[in-house]
Every structure is written in C-alpha cells, then in structure tokens.
C-alpha cells in the first residue's frame, strides 16, 4: 500500500506534468500547422490586393470613398511553449517557440483586415498599422499572460478609376 502511494506520488509529481507537456505539444503543433496552412491559402487568395503602410495616400490615387478597416485576433500559448519559454527565460536568447505564435497572430490579423476591406468592396488599404496588447491572466497575483491580442487597422479606399 505504501509503495503504491509512493508510486502514485511520483506519478503526480513528475509523470502528470510530463504527460500534459506531451499532449500540449502534439495538440499545439497540430493546430499551428493547420493554422499556417490556412493562412497561406488565404494569402494566396488575396494576392494582388494592395495593402500598404504609407501614412499619406499617394497622389495618383483617385479615390471615391474610404473607411477604416480592422482585423484582430486573440491568441494564447500552449503549455509546451510556455515551459520552453520559461527555460529560455533563465538564460536569455530568442524565444523560438513564441516566434511562430506571434507570426500567426500578425498574419491572421492582417488577413482579417484585408478580407473585411475586400468584402466591403474596397480596392486597397493604406496606412496599415499593427498594435498588440497583453491580456492579463485571471490569476490573482497578476502574473502570467492569458494571451495576446494582435490588432491590424488601416484606411480602406475605393478607387474612382484604376490607377497606375
């Protein structure tokens, strides 16, 4: 009985976190792969739609209407990424597990913004900006992060006549 309890304790102390870590890795990486595939497909679909970061409109753009468009995404990290990033935090350097996460967030936000512009019948978006904000965790001590929001916004315009 005592040995059984000992084994159980070892399992809960070491086995369980390891199991969660493995599950988090497999689920997390599957989701990430699928998301990237999805992003690539939609980017191909939008290929040729002008999205630029000038803050003033080029003079030769003859515009009939304009509006602000936004696209935002809230994304969270999985346990695996968190643990690896925690280890990385001890010695510093590139947090390689976070890079694809934020890359997905940026591209998804831009895609949503662009898709919204196209849906509303606009021809281009200029003055595109990206903003990010951290969502606090529900934990009382205020430590930790629930996730990040990535917001893309810009001015969508409709051309009176084709430019260029």
């Amino acid at each position: 009985m005592e040995d059984f309890l000992q084994t159980l304790e070892i399992f809960f102390n070491f086995g369980l976190p390891l199991l969660i870590l493995m599950v988090a890795y497999f689920v997390g990486s599957t989701i990430e792969k699928r998301h990237f595939k999805n992003i690539c497909e939609r980017e191909d679909d939008l290929h040729g739609f002008p999205v630029v970061s000038f803050d003033t409109m080029p003079e030769d753009w003859n515009v009939s209407s304009c509006n602000m468009v936004t696209g935002s995404i809230v994304i969270s990290l999985d346990y695996f990424k968190r643990v690896i990033a925690g280890l990385r935090g001890l010695i510093g350097g590139r947090i390689k597990t976070y890079e694809p996460l934020l890359e997905r967030a940026r591209r998804e936000a831009l895609l949503r913004m662009t898709e919204s512009a196209r849906e509303q019948g606009y021809d281009a978006v200029f003055n595109v900006r990206l903003e990010t904000s951290r969502l606090a965790n529900a934990r009382r001590d205020g430590k930790g992060t629930a996730g990040v929001e990535m917001l893309a916004f810009g001015t969508a315009v409709k051309f009176a006549s084709r430019f260029g």
Partner: peptide, 16 residues
C-alpha cells in the same frame, strides 16, 4: 522570415 528554423523539440532538448 520571422520564424527561426528550429524544430521546437530540438529547442526543448537543447535547453533541457
């Protein structure tokens, strides 16, 4: 361009 070309498991192994 914005993502390091390192497999997450390799990164995990190296760190551990």
């Amino acid at each position: 361009i914005n993502v390091s070309d390192v497999h997450p498991l390799v990164e995990a192994g190296t760190l551990v």
